[in-house]
Structure formats: C-alpha cells, structure tokens
C-alpha cells in the first residue's frame, strides 16, 4: 500500500505519504486563505521527500470535511482529478475522524472525547467518539452552547469555545499523516471508506431576491 493523503477542510494545508505501516513524509502549513496555492506544491514536495514516484501510488485518501467550503473543495477536486489522471481509487475520510485518530495516538485512547473544528459564524463542526475510538455522534454543525460534549475535547473548535468545551486541548487542526494512518488502518481491516463527496452539512447560502422592487417613488 502506498497512499497519498491530504486535507484542506481546516486552516491547515497538509499532505502525507504512507506505506501502510508508517508515514514516509508529511507537510503541514497553516494558512486558511491559500489552500489553492499551497496544496499541489505540498503534494509534489511530500512525494519528493518520501522518494516516491507518483506512478507507484496505490490510492489517494482525502479529508472530505466537514469544513469551510471554499478550501474544502480544493482538496476534493484535486483528489478527484489526481485519481482520474493517475487511475487511482480515491478514499474519503471524515476530517474529524482523522483528528480523533491523532488524538488517540497522542494519549486519548481509552477515553471518550469530542472533536470540534471551527465552522465560522459562531458554530463548530463536531463529532464524539467512545473509548474504543468509534464515532458515536456527528458529524454535525451547531452552536457550541447547544452542545453537551464529552469531558475531553480536541480541535480548534474546542479551543475557540472553552466555555462550551472545558477539557479542550490539541491537536488543533488535522494532519495528513493521521488521516493517512486512519485510512490505512481502515483499508487493512477491509472496511470501506467514504466516497469523495464533501460533507457540507449546510445548505448553500442563497437568498431569493424579494419580488421586483419598484423604482418609482410610492
């Protein structure tokens, strides 16, 4: 197995190469406004660092969100195009699952917790996990005050709203290494990952213009 993994659902632009056992190389830049500029150079760089020719890859793992849409789409359309051009399967991973995978690796294994990212507009994208790391709730988008999170929480959404997430700590954003690790473990266990479709969780903003406005004074 030789996976190229990347995620653009959080402010991080992150890419990694994973051989099914370990992360061979990883890059991580935080710049919420430049996903489009940073992603392809990051992919190119991580493959060079891993010493892997793109034609040897066996699959692509991509974070499908939830996340702010404009950045999220950069990752998804890149994954779709690379999969098409290189003839590779594209595996979608819920970005919150990747953050949870990393949180367990960093010490939260055996405890239930909530992962939350910033959804802007005073809301968070979130999901909760049990002690075995299974997702028990979410992904969903809500106002922090309306949630009853687990006693421990991770992610920038938890850090941003400490009143709603008292036990909040890192990891802040997703890392492609963790995303690749999650995908590799799931694939090795024979489980299906998600299709390469965005988890928007919100309907598009679209105001129907009010009826035709008169220009003559009433």
């Amino acid at each position: 197995m030789l996976l190229l993994a990347f995620d653009t659902a959080t402010p991080a632009v992150t890419a990694a190469v994973h051989d099914g056992t370990a992360v061979l190389a990883e890059t991580h830049q935080v710049d919420a406004r430049r996903h489009g500029e940073l992603l392809l150079p990051a992919i190119d760089q991580v493959l060079r660092a891993a010493g892997v020719d793109k034609h040897r890859l066996t699959g692509i793992a991509v974070g499908v969100g939830p996340g702010p849409y404009t950045g999220l789409r950069v990752g998804l359309v890149t994954a779709a195009a690379l999969g098409h051009a290189l003839g590779l399967p594209v595996h979608g991973v819920c970005t919150l699952d990747a953050i949870a995978f990393q949180a367990r690796a960093e010490g939260l294994a055996g405890q239930p917790f909530t992962a939350a990212t910033d959804a802007r507009r005073k809301e968070v994208y979130w999901a909760s996990y049990d002690a075995e790391g299974r997702r028990t709730e979410g992904p969903a988008v809500d106002r922090p005050a309306e949630l009853t999170p687990q006693p421990r929480s991770v992610g920038a959404g938890a850090l941003l709203y400490p009143d709603a997430f008292p036990g909040g700590h890192g990891p802040e954003h997703v890392s492609a290494g963790a995303l690749a690790g999650f995908a590799a473990a799931e694939l090795a266990a024979g489980r299906e990952l998600l299709p390469n479709h965005p988890l928007y969780l919100r309907r598009p903003d679209a105001q129907v213009p009010a009826g035709y406005k008169a220009v003559l004074p009433a």
């Binding site: 489009g36 392809l40 359309v77 890149t78 779709a80 195009a81 690379l82 290189l86």
Partner: peptide
Amino acid sequence: VGVSAAKAYAWA
C-alpha cells in the same frame, strides 16, 4: 475549483 483541477491534471 477549475484552477485546482487544472493543476492536478497538469502535475499528474
């Protein structure tokens, strides 16, 4: 969306 796709095809 178009620019990201074009980059991916060009690179691949």
